[in-house]
């Protein structure tokens, strides 16, 4: 039996097909989000089934998650990304006690109980500072590709201080830093440190280890190092961080099939 998780995020849609026999990922994909979120997710879902030779009759329950979860009409159930993220990380990093999830438009912190359930969480979905969008904006301003930001930041000897809480004003600060002759490396390091500081402040810095970083921004090299530096604790990047939430949704779909209690919304 294949169970599916669909994460309709603000920037991308992710689908994970979970094989309940092998208890592993049968297929996974990520596509850019569109106006019709249901159609985008559905197309990805259908493509993954087709490309991986899965018999459609073997596809069981589908759980939708993410900001656009209510728009996924082919999902039988919706569960928030908080619960799904915890389930996904529990599967891939069972020992994790804290999850930092930095996505395109928001960032989250989750504290897990010993059994992997959510004990506490906090979200920043109010401003772009501390999110992937912030990183993209500032990388573009520096003329640096996002995937090279960490590499460049690693060359920094004196990370710049980005003090503004607002992404728009932070852009102004970067203009000022560039005009002052501050190196791109120092600014890049400052940008990563700024995001790490925002996320750390949101969590109250009271984090139990092991800490796992997930979400799209976890793919940016150097982000985990910036978080480690701010938090003073090791931070591991989750395997395939973009899909952990969808994976969690698929796992919760499978558990619902087994009659395990799953939260509903």
């Amino acid at each position: 039996m294949i169970c599916a998780g669909v994460d309709a995020g603000s920037r991308t849609a992710k689908v994970v097909l979970f094989d309940s026999d092998s208890l592993g990922v049968a297929a996974a994909g990520v596509v850019d989000q569109g106006i019709d979120q249901d159609a985008v997710a559905d197309a990805l879902f259908v493509r993954l089934i087709r490309e991986n030779g899965i018999d459609p009759s073997q596809v069981g329950p589908v759980v939708g998650t993410g900001y656009g979860r209510k728009l996924i009409r082919f999902a039988q159930k919706t569960i928030t990304e908080i619960t799904c993220q915890a389930a996904g990380i529990r599967h891939s990093v069972p020992e994790a006690r804290t999850i930092i999830d930095i996505g395109g438009q928001d960032s989250k912190y989750l504290r897990l109980n010993g059994n992997g359930s959510v004990a506490d969480f906090a979200m920043n979905d109010r401003c772009a500072a501390g999110t992937g969008r912030f990183l993209e904006l500032l990388a573009a301003q520096l003329g640096v590709r996002l995937d090279r930001l960490g590499e460049i930041a690693a060359l920094s000897r004196n990370p710049a201080i980005i003090s503004s809480m607002c992404a728009v004003f932070a852009e102004t600060e970067i203009v000022g830093l560039l005009a002052s002759g501050i190196t791109t490396a120092d600014i890049a390091a400052g940008v990563l440190a700024s995001i790490a500081t925002r996320v750390a402040a949101m969590s109250g810095r009271n984090l139990d280890g092991p800490i796992v970083l997930t979400g799209g921004v976890a793919l940016v090299p150097g982000m985990e190092a910036a978080l480690e530096s701010i938090l003073g604790q090791p931070v591991a990047v989750a395997p395939r961080p973009q899909i952990t939430c969808a994976l969690g949704a698929a796992i919760l779909a499978w558990k619902s099939l087994n009659g395990s209690p799953t939260p509903t919304a």
């Binding site: 003090s163 102004t172 970067i174």
Partner: peptide, 11 residues
């Protein structure tokens, strides 16, 4: 004026 205004200095 933040605690460290270096980045704002030109502005």
């Amino acid at each position: 004026v933040p605690s460290l205004a270096d980045a704002m200095r030109p502005t």
